[in-house]
Design a protein around this nucleic acid. Structure first.
Length: 751
DNA sequence: GCGATCAGAT
DNA sequence: CACATCTGATCGC
């Protein structure tokens, strides 16, 4: 019978000691090394077999691996021009862990900024001039800097083991005890603010402030600065807090937009429908023009003017009409038609809500359920929706029940949609995972982790301020997207820092490498905990900072439904291990383990460690893994030489269906006679069957396992977490299950 | 021609 | 279901 032969003597006690990560504890405590593993080393191993195989020439190697696994895609080399030969010439016989050629140390090259306020860049980047020389700067730069130097020192610590999953004792010890919040200098309603609504007015504020700053560039302070809305003295606030304050006032007191110059600013501001547009009309800017600008289709402005299309008739234009009037290009036409249909939907709803037609009512009710079940949430949403989630359409929204008098436009273009409430951190000038909603009124963009649905919209031309994220995420953002380090601020784990007057603390989210949960403690005293994506574990309840009072919890509700109950990751990995053993009777078996750009590392790393087998990864995947700061003892299990391993890490979609797997099988025809693939996904359980450790499918010589390996919290875990945090409000960050599941969760929680 | 973006697919 | 991503079409520079 075939068994795995250890490639390396299993003397791993050293790194076991060093690695505080769950990874290791998982290995040392939960995962039993399969008995058969240690026995029977008479049987020729696949390994030795593959060593005897004829060595393919380099070009074969490349074409095979890249063709089979679509390496050109996700695990793609970020530098397109990088010649394949570079990969090929890597030593293939002895796998050395090359020093990473990724510029991971570049953050340190970034000169530590000192007090640079009165410099030219203050005029260039608004967020810098925003800093009050006395207060803002004091509260922002020095604090961060101070912490940043610590960050540098901590980097090593953070990345020891899997930095991302260690709520290590070590790091927890360094938790700062949480001081009381500074008394808010703004009025008590501050927290009720949404952040971005009337960018128009904000822009006004900017230009005014810009002038002021230019004037006082030399450091002139002392003037009393009043809120343009309520008139109260906001001189003591940092400029960003002033923005926040002003935004709140704006939300409270909707006003007419006074200046069309700003109305026409195509920076994605939210436009009120007829009323405000009407006011802009008096300044000879038609609402249609603004609307077109927001769609990025200003070039058709002339056409619409020529055809004398007004706001009302716009809503009834058809695709055909557009063709006739000269919008012939398919793309723009589609865009316009889509946007029009949204306009219609919206006005339709406006009409219907009062009528309470059965259908509409049910929609309204279901929309409101979330808020109903979270006392205080409704009010919040309403306000933050004015700037935030209100106009959401499509799959990323639907939790925003309240449509403030339906006066907002929906834009088909994501970029111009309102920032959803779960992206805006009320009471702060921050956004979280909101790169799809880039605006010029914000300069602090937090990224919880490096998954496409969270960094979506972020491109290397990002120029909206700073990106705040964990070290691992920072490396990936730099590697994969090409964001220069100058635009990235690395956040330490388990350590409170101050950004723009707001206390910020990050914790490991137990999701993918680098994923963090972020606690924001704004001056208004209403702490906001943003989970990003996370999987709850009991250790989180031991984090001192989380035992604080949390006002609003922005919660990853991916599996917020009782039907979603899956096993612990350890159990699933154990299942995979056993399945590999069970299938390994055939020495010509190729094992494939699915993976995303990042995520699911634990599955294949544990397989390697427990089975003592090397794992093949593509060069691009290796570069990503090199960002994770895994100890050498772990990295030694990875190889870039596919001949060294019959366990391959492949992009998840390679395993998506048997058709693709057959493709792989064909490519390896003759070399492998059996393919065993593992798809680790949280969705791989049937609704009725709870916690089944995995499903096995077979078609001929291809076996496909779906294993419920989730990096999101199960419903049970969500419950525990919510109970632990006991927030006043919850904002779901995922709306896939709608309000119903949130309602269920809440009712269960309250029982 | 390349990067960005989006809808639709998986 | 929709995880997290891919694909292909289109547009702008």
């Amino acid at each position: 019978m075939f068994t795995f032969l250890p490639l390396v003597p299993p003397s791993n006690s050293k790194y076991k000691k060093e690695t505080l990560s769950l990874f290791t504890s998982l290995h040392s405590t939960n995962l039993k090394t399969p008995d058969r593993l240690q026995q029977d080393n008479n049987t020729p191993s696949l390994m030795s077999k593959s060593k005897n195989m004829k060595t393919p020439n380099p070009s074969q190697f490349t074409s095979i691996s890249s063709t089979i696994y679509n390496d050109d895609d996700d695990f793609q080399d970020p530098i397109p021009s990088l010649p394949f030969t570079q990969t090929l010439t890597k030593p293939t016989s002895s796998i050395k862990l090359k020093p990473s050629n990724t510029p991971i140390n570049r953050p340190s090259k970034k000169p530590k900024k000192t007090h640079t306020l009165p410099g030219k860049e203050n005029l260039i980047t608004p967020h810098e001039f925003d800093l009050d020389p006395d207060l803002g700067l004091e509260s922002f730069e020095p604090t961060v800097l101070c912490n940043k130097t610590e960050v540098g020192e901590k980097k090593k610590k953070l990345t020891d083991g899997f930095g991302y999953l260690s709520n290590s004792i070590e790091s927890r010890l360094s938790l700062q005890s949480r001081g009381g919040c500074a008394p808010s200098k703004v009025d008590g309603d501050l927290e009720e603010t949404g952040t971005t609504q009337l960018d128009v007015l904000l822009d006004l504020c900017y230009s005014e402030e810009e002038k002021e700053i230019e004037d006082e560039d030399v450091g002139g302070v002392g003037e009393i600065i009043s809120c343009p809305m309520c008139g109260s003295d906001i001189s003591n606030m940092s400029d960003e807090m002033r923005q926040v304050h002003t935004n709140e006032c704006l939300d409270k007191e909707p006003i007419d937009i006074p200046d069309n110059d700003h109305v026409s600013e195509p920076s994605g501001q939210v436009l009120d429908d007829p009323p405000n547009l009407a006011s802009s009309e008096t300044h000879h800017v038609s609402p249609i023009s603004i609307w077109l600008q927001n769609l990025g289709l200003s070039r058709y402005e002339e056409v619409f003017i020529r055809e004398e299309i007004d706001w009302d008739s716009l809503k009834w234009l058809t695709d055909e009409d557009l063709c006739k009037i000269g919008v012939t290009a398919l793309g723009p036409r589609k865009k316009i038609v889509h946007a029009i249909s949204e306009l219609r939907t919206e006005s339709h709803e406006e009409v219907n809500i009062p009528e309470k037609s059965a259908q509409k009512e049910s929609k309204t009710v279901s929309n409101k359920l979330i808020t109903d079940f979270f006392p205080g949430f409704a009010g919040n949403v309403k306000k933050s929706c004015t700037t935030g989630a209100q106009a959401q359409v499509g799959k990323t929204n639907s939790n925003n029940g309240n449509k403030r008098s339906g006066t907002k436009m929906n834009f088909s273009n994501n970029k111009f949609r309102d920032t959803p409430s779960w992206c805006s951190i009320t009471g702060t000038p921050f956004r979280v995972d909101a790169f799809k909603y880039l605006r010029r009124d914000c300069f602090h963009w937090f990224l919880t982790h490096f998954h496409a649905d969270h960094y979506g919209g972020l491109t290397k031309s990002f120029c909206h301020g700073k990106i705040y994220c964990s070290l691992i995420t920072a490396k990936l953002v730099n590697l994969k997207i090409g964001i220069p380090w100058e635009k990235i601020e690395v956040l330490p784990l388990n350590q409170k820092i101050n950004i723009a007057g707001v206390d910020v603390t990050c914790f490991d989210a137990n999701h993918c490498p680098g994923a963090v949960i972020i606690l924001f403690e704004p001056p208004n005293g209403k702490a906001i905990l943003h989970t990003g994506d996370f999987r709850f574990n009991e250790d989180m309840t031991k984090i001192a900072s989380l035992q604080t009072r949390v006002h609003t919890l922005v919660l990853d509700t991916t599996y917020c439904d009782p039907q979603y109950d899956f096993p612990k990751q350890e159990a699933v990995i154990q299942y995979v291990l056993e399945a590999i053993q069970a299938e390994a009777f055939n020495p010509k078996t190729l094992f494939l383990i699915g993976s995303y750009t990042i995520g699911k590392e634990r599955v294949f790393m544990e397989v390697a460690r427990v089975l003592q087998k090397k794992i093949y990864v593509t060069a691009a995947k290796m570069r990503v893994l090199e960002c994770l700061g895994m100890p050498k003892e772990d990295m030694q299990w990875l190889t870039l030489d596919e001949r060294e391993s019959h366990i391959h890490v492949v992009p998840m979609w390679t395993l998506a269906n048997f058709k693709r797997l057959k493709h792989v099988a064909n490519m390896y025809m003759g070399r492998y006679s059996l393919i065993v693939a593992f798809s680790p996904t949280g969705w791989s359980f049937s609704k009725g069957k709870k916690s089944s450790p995995g499903k096995r499918w077979q078609q001929g010589t291809i076996i496909r396992y779906e294993v419920p390996y989730s990096e999101h919290s199960s419903f049970t875990e969500l419950k525990k977490f919510v109970k632990f945090i006991s927030p006043e409000n919850i904002i779901p960050s995922v709306n896939n299950h709608g309000s119903e599941s949130v309602r269920k969760m809440v009712s269960l929680l309250s029982s």
